[in-house]
Every structure is written in structure tokens, then in C-alpha cells.
């Protein structure tokens, strides 16, 4: 068996029910309080997952049941209120992928900036720069300010940068729903390539076909709890029988 790359132990995170809820300075500093106050709810609780290198995991569940939150915990962009999330090795998060781009800078400057923020060194960026631009099909627009790209082009550029990060763990949160069909196919092939290269995949999607295509193991989240952890077919079947999402 290969090494464990992601270990989630009893992880839980809670949110406020309404944004306008009363808050006091005291609340803010009561950081490690284990009990949820009445105006809070646990978005996830008691989740235990171990992921080994090279596994491809699909996360299913209805909206608001904690899928994206789990992904964010693994990506380290949110911190659990209880339990632990340990991730060994770098993460390439395809979450809000266009977030790092700056409107007023050119495509070229943006590639350097975003790749750098995600941990690539200068030499690595220079080495992969042409590849990134080719993949995004933006060869003629490298000096165009980012804000003048179409929204499809923006997603293409973003996917292209993040998917070249060469990190061992790839997190994908429904970003593939955007972009035209041809580019989506290209993204899928890129993910296939990365998987074949031994990457670990954490995939959140509502699309059963995509889940079956990439994933071998599934996690079914419901009501903030991990209901089922097993082969993807079984997980999808359980989800279907609970909610009959396909009819």
C-alpha cells in the first residue's frame, strides 16, 4: 500500500446560521470552544477519512451538505473547529480558480503571479510558461489585460495554470461545468493524464458520469456527516436511493 497523503480525523467545522447574528468581541476570542452556540450549526462533524497516494475520490451529496467545505478543509483554505486535517504534500486547488487573477495586469504577468502564489518557483514558471499558454489557447493574447478576456478564456487560463502545478494532490470543485465542450474534454484528458501520473484526486461534482469516469472511491456526505465511504458505484447508488437524484 502507498502512503497516506490526506488524513482527516474527527474534523468538524461550524458556521453561523444567519450572517446578521449578534456577535460580541467575546465570541470572537472564544476560539477553541467545543460547543456550538444556539445560532450556529455544524456544517461537518466527526468526519474521518484517510486517503492514500494515487487514489481518486469523488464526493457526493446534495447542496449544502458539506462537500465543498470538506474540500476547503483539505485545501487548507479553511481551518477545522475540532479534529485535525493533515495533508502531506502540496495541493493544486481547482477551487475558485480565477480568484488570483488581477484585472489590470496582462495575461503574461498574471500567469507569473498566480503560479508563484501557488508555489511555483521562477524557473519552473519560465519552463512551463509556453505549455500553459498553449493549453489555454491564448497565444495571441499574452499582452492583453486580463479584464479584456472573455469569461471562457479566463477559466481556460486559470485551469491551465493550476493544472500545471505538478502538486501531488489535485482538488477539483465543479469548475469543469464552465467552458465550452471542446475545452471541457481537454480538461478531462488533462485530469486523466495527471491521474495516470499518480496524482491523488479529490473531486466534488453532481455529475454522475464525471464521477464514474475519474473516481474509484466515493464519499457520501449528508447532514454534515460522512454517511458512506466505499467504491464509487455503491456510493452513487446509496445517494440515488436516498434522494432519487436521477429520474
Amino acid at each position: 500500500m502507498s502512503d497516506i497523503v490526506i488524513r482527516v480525523e474527527g474534523a468538524g467545522i461550524r458556521f453561523r446560521r444567519n450572517r446578521r447574528g449578534r456577535r460580541s468581541f467575546k465570541d470572537l476570542f472564544a476560539g477553541s470552544n467545543r460547543r456550538a452556540r444556539p445560532d450556529e450549526f455544524w456544517a461537518l462533524r466527526g468526519v474521518d477519512v484517510e486517503v492514500r497516494a494515487g487514489e481518486a475520490i469523488g464526493v457526493v451529496g446534495r447542496n449544502g451538505q458539506g462537500k465543498s467545505t470538506l474540500l476547503k478543509l483539505v485545501a487548507g483554505v479553511m481551518l477545522p473547529d475540532e479534529g485535525r486535517v493533515d495533508v502531506h504534500g502540496g495541493v493544486a486547488p481547482l477551487i475558485e480558480i480565477t480568484g488570483g487573477f488581477v484585472d489590470d495586469l496582462t495575461v503574461r504577468e498574471n500567469v507569473h503571479l498566480t503560479a508563484g502564489l501557488h508555489g511555483m518557483t521562477r524557473a519552473e514558471i519560465d519552463e512551463r510558461y509556453d505549455e500553459i499558454i498553449d493549453f489555454a489557447e491564448l497565444g495571441e493574447s499574452v499582452d492583453t489585460p486580463y479584464k479584456h478576456l472573455s469569461s471562457g478564456m479566463k477559466v481556460r487560463l486559470a485551469f491551465s495554470v493550476i493544472s500545471r502545478l505538478e502538486e501531488p494532490i489535485l482538488l477539483v470543485d465543479e469548475v469543469l461545468a464552465v467552458g465550452d465542450k471542446a475545452f471541457r474534454e481537454k480538461c478531462y484528458r488533462r485530469i486523466d493524464e495527471l491521474l495516470a501520473g499518480g496524482r491523488t484526486l479529490f473531486f466534488v461534482s453532481h455529475n454522475e458520469r464525471d464521477l464514474k469516469r475519474f473516481c474509484t472511491r466515493g464519499l457520501y456526505l449528508d447532514k454534515g456527516l460522512l454517511q458512506l465511504d466505499g467504491p464509487i458505484e455503491g456510493v452513487l447508488a446509496a445517494y440515488d436511493s436516498d434522494y432519487g437524484s436521477r429520474s
Binding site: M1, S2, D3, V5, R52, A53, G54, E55, H88, G89, G90, E124, E166, E167, P168, G197, G198, R199
Partner: peptide, 12 residues
């Protein structure tokens, strides 16, 4: 069967 490479070589 997961690819039997260690994480370090996978990373970079």
C-alpha cells in the same frame, strides 16, 4: 492498484 511511487518523487 495505486501507483507505487513515493510522495516526494510525485511532488516535483
Amino acid at each position: 492498484m495505486p501507483v507505487p511511487l513515493s510522495i516526494v518523487t510525485l511532488a516535483s
